[in-house]
Amino acid sequence: MSRLSDWHIMGALALTGIAGPLLFPAFAAQFAFLWLMVTFALTWDILGGRMGYNSFGNIVFFGIGCYAAAVIQRDMGLPYFEGLALGLAAGVVLAVLAAVLLGSALLGIRGHYFAIATLGLAVASGEIAAGWRYVGAGSGMALPLYPGALGERELFFTWSLLAVAALCFLFCRFLYSTRFGLALNAIRDDHDKADAMGLRTTPIKIFAWCVSAFFLALSGGLAANMIGFIDPRDVAFAGATFGVWMVLMAILGGKGTLWGPVLGAIVFHITQEIFWTYLLGWQRVALGALIVVIVVFFPQGIMGWWAEWRARREAA
């Protein structure tokens, strides 16, 4: 994709994101979730697609963002927006700190051991939150009400989640254009070789996870306020939904590509919104089946499929 068309697509998406909820106020929440999904897929792909570290545990940073905002907004006695701002900041700081600590411990592990370790991390975090009374234990936490009018509330969260997704996209785009992006790919293609060529792989890997954690925590605090309630296992540390969707959307779009995760998130979210209501309680069964089908039959993703198709057409 040339630079020009890149900016065109970004502009069109931004315009859709800004004007969409104004024109179709009933769909404002769907737009908000779409941007959340885009952030999910993009942040997963930093490690999963670019660096070859398949993580099931990124949801932990989202959960930290949710809970940090909820606790600060509950305990600090600040007006709504001040509380939200402080909550988001605290969430980001805690999540990045967690990424540094967990990264130091876990990012030395490779391959499927890393995948299973991060899966354990995600479930353990949810279970700890579900047993910890200070954060409401199993009954979760309610967030303060948005002070403005009803429609205004939807717009505020839709646009702020759009802003997070856009920032995340632009930052990833910048990262992948630098030597840092090449270093991530080098670690993915041959970790030992990257070490033998003198790359500082450990700080590179930890920083990559910190970038994921930063944007996930930010979107977590906002999403918690938008939903208004956080359940430890079904919202904050929702490993079986959000946690797997991240992986699925990135693979569906094409992992390791710039636009793949965005595309995957859009396709997944729209499909989900259209078909989910017809499935009458079978949604999660269908999700399991969808994972199997995509992983087994379509692991190259839409971008990979497109590249293959173009290569075949050029060869013909």
């Binding site: 990262l175 630098t178 030597r179 840092f180 270093a183 060529m197 500082r200």
Partner: peptide
């Protein structure tokens, strides 16, 4: 490319 993180955050 063997430098610290900041030196990596630049194009080639």
């Amino acid at each position: 490319a063997q430098g610290g993180l900041l030196s990596l955050l630049r194009p080639v």
